[in-house]
Amino acid sequence: MHPISTVHYLVLSAALLLIGTVGVLTRRNVVIILMSIELILNAVNINLVAFSHALPPLDGLPNMRGQVFAIFVITDAVAEAAVGLGILIALFRNKETVLADEIDLLKW
């Protein structure tokens, strides 16, 4: 086997991204959609950390920039999950459904 290089991580990240995208586009349940979005965000994180690990050192210390970015992404994901679930609850309260197909009020 080859030694694990950055490319492996990148391929993994791409695959996870695609899986998450399929989930967003395909599932009807909004909760599952939100979970798929978490998958996508995690794929991004993997990508960032892989690159952070591959970057040359900065001032003699390992380069942490990718990880910092990943922290912010996680923060973002948290906020977004919270608000999204709040929206879901509000939606469920009004529409009695959690299926994305049935929420088409903006239809022409």
Binding site: Y9, A50, L85
Partner: peptide, 22 residues
């Protein structure tokens, strides 16, 4: 990848926070 802090944050925040919320 030697991202120990992120490992911890991932466990605590993501799994312990977000998934519990879910």
């Amino acid at each position: 990848q030697q991202a120990e802090f992120l490992f911890a944050v991932q466990i605590v925040l993501y799994v312990g926070g977000i998934m519990v919320l879910f």
